[in-house]
Structure formats: C-alpha cells, structure tokens
Design a protein around this nucleic acid. Structure first.
Lengths: 194, 194
DNA sequence: CGAAAAAAGTCAACATGGCTGACATAAATG
DNA sequence: CATTTATGTCAGCCATGTTGACTTTTTTCG
C-alpha cells in the first residue's frame, strides 16, 4: 500500500506532544479504532490467499467456502450448508452445481432418507480444499509465532468472544465435531495402512 | 445457527476417546482449522453490526468503508482513498457520489492543488461514522474483556502479524497518523470550549 | 512556453454473489 | 392420504467489484 499522503491542509502538523494516548469517545467507552482497521486489513489479506488460487480456476470465494465446509463435514446435507453459510438456496445452488459439474464435489442421495443429497469431496476437491487450509494456516502460524508462545489460546478465545453469544455454542460444537470426524478419518488411514 | 445436524452415515459415532488432540497435516505444519473457521464467523458478525444500520438508510458496506476512512483522515484525497481501499476509481466513484449527494461527505477542491478533491465528512456524516465505530468497538471491548487483561496488546500484535509484511509499515503509519489528527481535533475542541 | 503527467470524473459493459418470489418433484411423516 | 421436508429451478433484481476508453482541469517539468 504505497504510503498514503493524506494532505492535512488547514490542520497543519501541530505535533502537540500527545498528552493522553487516546482521547476516548466519552461515555461510550474507548473506541477501538486501531483494532477495527487492523481487522479490516488483516482479514482482507487472509482471504486474498485463497483468492489467488481461485482465480486460476475461475472460481470465487463462494466456491471456497462451500468446498471448505464440505471438506470438514463429509456427508453433510445441503440444508446444513445453508445453515452454516446463511445464504439462500439459490445462491448456494449456483456454486454447488459448478463444483459438482467440475468434479470437486459429489452429491449422493442419502441411504436412510433419499430426499437428502449428502455432499462429499472428490479426491480432486479434497486436494484443493487442503491447499486452501495450508495457505491460510501458514499465515496464521506465522502470525502466532510473532505474537508469542501462548498467543494461540488467547487468540482462539478472543475470536470466540467476537462471535454473537447465541451462536457460540453451535459454532464451537461444529468445529469440535469436524475435528472428531477428521480424526476418525486419520485413524482409518492408520488402520488400513498399518 | 440452529445446531447443524451433519449426518455421519457410514462413519458411525466411533468415539475412540481422542488420543492426540490434533492429528496434524504432516510436513506442512499444523493446520489451523479452528482459527480459520472462527475468523470467518467472527468477521461475519463483526461486519453485521454496521450492516444493520446501513440497511435502514439503504447504503452498503462500501459506503461504510468510505465513510470510515474519510472520518479518520479528514481532507484526504480521492487517490488516497483508492490506495487504502484498493478498488477502482469507478467503484469508488459510485458510492462517493451517493455519499456526497445525500450530504454525508463534502468534497472541496484543494487550496494548493486545485485538481484535488479533498474529502470531509459533514456533521451528518460524522454522526454516522461514529455510530459505526461505537458499535464495532463495543463488540471488540466485550471480546477483549472476556479474553483477559493483557489481551488488547496481544490481539493488536496478532492482527498486525496477519497482514502482509510489506504492507505493515504503511498501515501502522496510517493508523498512527489518523490517531494524531483526531487528537489534534479534540485538542482544538478543548481550546475552543475552555 | 508547451508537452507531458497527474487528479478526478464519466460512459459502457461485464462478473460475482447476494437477494426475492414462484414453483416443481420426490420422499418421508403423521 | 394430506402435509411437510429436502432439494432444485426459473426469472429477475441489487450491490459492488472489474476492464477499457476517454475527457477536463491543473500542475509540473524540460
């Protein structure tokens, strides 16, 4: 971001030696201006990592999100995905169709309930999903290393606390369940390989 | 997010008591799956706060971003804004025109360089910008409180470290400069009030 | 001075990914 | 059997990003 030159016409460089570090927005509580902006820039960079990969295969962020959550929850239903992503069936339908057509996802009728379409990644889809996780994990690992040894747990708690309280339970369960199934999968790999 | 019911058809509830907490993605380094997802959900909630306000006045996120940065850098040029937002002149042009037309921003030719349009918020614009800051700051303050006493500095460092190294300098300067000018403004208020 | 560059704006066309509303079909459920 | 659920689809709209081409005004520099 080529050093911005905000011209301070009238308000000339009056460097009055800064008495209080932050004048504060009165009764409202301290304004978190720096964090608001850092979060904006950090998140932009965070999503730009997958964006570069996506460009090469003319997919967009919507495809990334779908691929990611299907990867994490193999066999999930379309409804589950809608619930996580909070978009409409029609919006999801578009990207899901493309992902299926191009062989990243396959969608099979449920065994017990044949109305359901259970979503799984193909090997091709799994490879791509893992690329996304790898590149974003790299950025996160680097950031945590630069933030000190115990930062991971604190950052995790901070992020959870940024989520609406009424959603936290469901989201933490969602993550825990995904971790469980991926563990089950690697156990299966161990069993079949060993 | 009404508790998602990921059906685990084949892979039945084999709760094998989880030996290692995270099986890890081999040579790639530990995958940060939980943080990737938490960041997604946290950021979505974070931007949903202003979204609600924006809906009432039929503006979008693009308007919010413009308003915010003009608020923080009064007198900035259009070019500066383009550089921060990293969008095209045409995209910016649309929302900027609406913001000016509806009396949130005013745009005056520069005194020294009359090609420039220096952007300032009107009182109406400043009120709205402060609403956005207030609501997002509230969420951040709450999250930091829940994360322990020293979390603010650590979170700040983490967010900086999440930004591409080559951009960090410019962004930190940008934030510092904005803090300076807002301080200068509150000094001015003190002088004129006292 | 005059040419080139910079700052801003504009027109037209297009892509992505949200949205609403209206339906259709198959399958499960009571 | 009537209803509900899960999924999908058509058509159209909106917000916000993109490219490319071009204009006007003003500054800068050889």
């Amino acid at each position: 971001m080529a050093d911005i030159n905000v011209s301070m016409t009238s308000r000339s460089g009056k460097s009055e030696s800064a008495p209080s570090p932050r004048p504060a927005g009165a009764a409202e509580g301290e304004p978190m201006l720096d964090l608001i902006e850092l979060l904006f820039f950090a998140y932009r960079n965070f999503v730009s990592d997958p964006d570069e990969i996506l460009q090469g295969i003319s997919f967009g962020r919507a495809h990334h999100r779908v691929l990611h959550f299907v990867s994490r929850h193999p066999g999930m239903r379309v409804t589950d995905l809608l619930d996580i992503l909070r978009i409409t069936k029609q919006s999801l339908g578009r990207v899901l169709r493309e992902l299926v057509e191009q062989g990243f996802i396959d969608s099979r009728a449920g065994a017990s309930d044949r109305r359901q379409r259970l979503l799984h990644l193909t090997p091709k889809g799994e490879t791509l999903a893992q690329e996304f996780v790898a590149i974003q994990s790299r950025r996160l690992r680097r950031a945590l290393e630069e933030s000190g040894p115990d930062s991971r747990e604190l950052v995790r708690r901070f992020l959870v606390a940024m989520i609406d309280p009424e959603d936290r339970g469901a989201i933490e369960k969602l993550i825990a369940r995904a971790d469980q199934t991926s563990e089950a999968r690697s156990m299966a790999r161990v069993r079949s390989a060993g």
